[in-house]
Design a protein around this nucleic acid. Structure first.
Lengths: 129, 129
DNA sequence: CAGGATCCAAGCCGATACTG
DNA sequence: CAGTATCGGCTTGGATCCTG
């Protein structure tokens, strides 16, 4: 990501495309929460939904399907009544936990600074509109 | 997201709202690219745009304004003709480079696996439509 | 219990044209 | 050079109802 060794005129799109792809997959509203919910082990559909407050059935289904499609989550269906479906992180999915945790630590440390900056910014533009 | 203490609970989930906030700020289409473009030092508006292929003036302006608002980037205007405006990462912005780089490394390593998983998934659903 | 289907509002984002 | 203004398509995501 850092490009100290690259001239400032060259486009860096190709360098960042990988990150952009990952963020397009992981950066939506619910994916990280679902991955976090599954970090402790396999879980059933409704258990995930209860664990994550406020996610709709539609979005949980879409998010899980996307994660399954990219090989981050496995879906195991038991043909019993009532039906039971377990979701679990794959090795690939668990490998994402590291980077996410790093980001999580950054967020915990700096979210206060970001909110203060935002407040100060709004105050500044309020003085000089 | 209110979490009752479940046996399965991990520290990740209890505060993953913070990660969601960070991703809401950083997970959009252009933010990471702009931060990456600025990782080498201060840059002018048009230089950033040239560096990042395909970003529109509108989105570059909006992205920079958002980053400035959250204290990740400073905007310095020189009242000369022709006008000159420099953008530069703040300490807070530079501190984000670490987590982003980690994510970048993960992306580089695993994007192949993700694309293969996706291809295999499409193939699987093509067999059983 | 685990979704599928449908509708709809809010936003993101690109393209284009214009300005100091 | 460094933006602002406006329009319009496309996507995102929530709410609601329905099914095996």
């Amino acid at each position: 990501m850092t490009n100290k060794n690259v001239s400032n005129d060259e486009p860096i799109l190709s360098d960042c495309q990988a990150v952009a792809d990952v963020l397009a997959r992981v950066g939506d509203k619910w994916t990280v929460m679902v991955v976090g919910a599954l970090s402790g082990g396999a879980m059933r559909y409704n258990a995930i939904q209860r664990r994550i407050g406020g996610i709709s059935q539609r979005m949980l289904t879409l998010t899980l399907k996307g994660l399954e499609q990219d090989g981050l989550v496995t879906r195991t269906m038991y043909t019993v009544i009532p039906p039971r479906v377990d979701y679990e992180l794959t090795d690939l999915g668990r490998s994402l936990l590291g980077p996410i945790t790093i980001l999580f630590d950054w967020a915990k440390i700096h979210q206060g600074a970001m909110h203060m900056a935002r407040a100060k910014f709004r105050e500044a533009v309020a003085i000089v509109p």
